[in-house]
């Protein structure tokens, strides 16, 4: 954690909302990235980010400077996302529309360009057969780019569990991608 972050957090811990606002501005995109990748929906992700920062504010005095602020934040965002997802899944059945990659395959563009809706659908599609644990490990490690140690800290799991879940998650995601590509090729 950088020195200026430490100062800002110290001020926020003493109740300075202006300093907390600086933290929000600085880290809301990171929080949004994680919430979006777990929930695969922009509006839900925004709600979760808001709820998470309220929790962070309420518990900022309990924050232990011994761990990275982002790790602590990711932990709260992950738990809030899981709670949100459980509550939402009770309200409505989740419908997954298969993403159409045909145009992207035909295009010579070296990089595919997805909007948020397409990205969300594709993440949902490739992770739909994963267990909750596998999905969280995959999102944190392979999509958020967190180190295995940080994933352990965020999810409160051992390194062995992380590695095992990541192995199965990658295997399943690869199979899904293969299926998507073989389907798209038939339709090109």
């Amino acid at each position: 954690m950088r020195f200026d972050d430490e100062k800002i957090i110290e001020k926020a811990q003493s109740g300075d909302k202006k300093s907390f606002g600086i933290l929000v501005k600085k880290y809301q995109q990171l929080a949004f990235n994680l919430a979006f990748r777990i929930l695969c929906n922009e509006d839900d992700a925004r709600d979760v980010v808001q709820e998470s920062f309220v929790k962070i504010w309420k518990n900022i005095k309990n924050y232990n400077p011994g761990i990275k602020f982002t790790t602590w934040m990711y932990k709260i965002v992950t738990n809030t996302s899981i709670d949100h997802q459980r509550a939402e899944s009770k309200k409505k059945a989740v419908c997954i529309d298969n993403i159409d990659l045909t145009n992207h395959l035909e295009s010579d563009n070296p990089e595919f360009i997805f909007d948020n809706r397409e990205t969300g659908q594709l993440i949902k599609q490739v992770t739909e057969t994963l267990s909750d644990k596998q999905r969280l490990v995959f999102v944190l490690r392979d999509l958020q780019g967190k180190s295995p140690d940080e994933v352990c800290e965020i999810l409160n799991l051992s390194l062995t569990t992380i590695k095992s879940n990541l192995y199965h998650a990658r295997k399943s995601v690869k199979e899904k991608l293969q299926m998507i590509f073989s389907y798209e090729r038939r339709n090109v």
Binding site: Q28, Q29, E42, R46, Q50, F112, F114, N116, D142
Partner: peptide
């Protein structure tokens, strides 16, 4: 190519509005 696209940050529309909403919720 697909996974690298998924690794890119999703677009956070109107970040100022989100900051405002968060601070209002805290209030």
């Amino acid at each position: 190519k697909v996974t690298s696209m998924l690794q890119k940050s999703p677009i956070l529309a109107d970040p100022e509005k989100l900051t405002e909403d968060i601070l209002l919720a805290i209030e």
